[in-house]
């Protein structure tokens, strides 16, 4: 849902980042307003996963330039946990298995950290169980998964559902979903996409990072961006994703070659 007057939730300006002194992001610009769903597409190595990690505050990535404002606040100076508490959520491409930490306990501690930040009272074990059972419905998840260790022995689809369950509990303002569609069969993809659609509202925003069109058949983006070589090369509406589906990414190389001579040049907007 595009409303030009909706408040800006995330404003990324000329963001540059490196890992192990290797520049990955080379000037990303992106503005996300409340109510919008954005999709960032691109080939492997284009920098789209790095963008998600940098926004969430992964310590292995060093920001070397530019700025990110989250609801007007400098996001980059906050610890990862503080970013999460104020409403930024990263759905992991590869959710981490944590043996010995119960999923239920993990979800409760995380939910309470977010609630405390919002000035809401913390939930005790019983109140939390009621909440989590209600939210399980969003991703049609079996309550048995609550009793297991975090993601341990979960299938690919179960891990991604667990990510969306966390999103349902944390009620983020900006959710970044990194390759949430990877490794999912069509049924799991429908369930996960259904969860994302249920959670989208006029007050929040979603940034989908994906390789393929198939997720976008189920979640309709308002804006589609194509990333290459650490920048957003082209932006457009949902039809851009369909065009990519038809023509592939080969044009990207030509465009990069054309831009190569002038690295400072901003990418052209496509209507």
């Amino acid at each position: 849902m595009i409303r030009p007057d909706a408040p800006v939730l995330l404003e990324i300006r000329d963001l540059q980042a490196a890992v192990d002194d290797q520049p990955i992001l080379k000037g990303v610009n992106l503005t996300i307003r409340a109510g919008e769903i954005h999709a960032v597409m691109g080939r492997n190595g284009s920098g789209k996963s790095t963008l998600s990690k940098v926004l969430a505050g992964h310590p292995a990535y060093a920001v070397t330039g530019g700025s990110v404002l989250y609801r007007g606040e400098n996001l980059l100076e906050l610890d990862p946990e503080q970013r999460a508490r104020i409403g930024l959520f990263l759905g992991f491409q590869y959710p981490v298995e944590i043996p010995g930490v119960s999923n239920l306990e993990f979800l409760r501690v995380a939910t309470n950290a977010r609630r405390a930040e919002r000035g809401e009272e913390e939930l005790d074990t019983f109140a939390f169980e009621d909440l989590v059972r209600e939210r399980l419905a969003v991703v049609q998840m079996d309550p048995a998964f609550l009793e297991r260790s975090v993601n341990e022995g979960f299938s690919g689809g179960e891990k991604k559902r667990n990510e969306i369950l966390q999103m349902a509990l944390l009620e983020p303002v900006v959710a970044i979903l990194d390759e949430t569609d990877s490794g999912l069969d069509i049924d799991a993809l429908r369930i996960v996409a259904g969860g994302v659609n249920q959670l989208a509202s006029p007050d929040n925003a979603t940034l989908l990072i994906t390789h393929y069109q198939r997720l976008l058949d189920l979640i309709t983006p308002d804006h589609v961006h194509v990333m290459a070589a650490g920048r957003i090369l082209r932006s457009g509406g949902k039809e851009l994703a369909l065009e990519l589906e038809r023509s592939g990414y080969d044009w990207v190389d030509q465009e990069l070659a054309r831009l190569g001579a002038d690295a400072e040049r901003q990418p052209a907007e496509v209507a």
């Binding site: 969430a56 505050g57 992964h58 310590p59 610890d79 990862p80 946990e81 970013r83 999460a84 508490r85 990263l90 992991f92 959710p95 981490v96 944590i98 993990f106 501690v109 995380a110 950290a113 977010r114 930040e117 966390q166 944390l170």
Partner: peptide, 10 residues
């Protein structure tokens, strides 16, 4: 990092 990204301090 996974735990911290869910609001749990280091």
């Amino acid at each position: 990092f996974y735990l911290r990204s869910r609001g749990i301090d280091a």
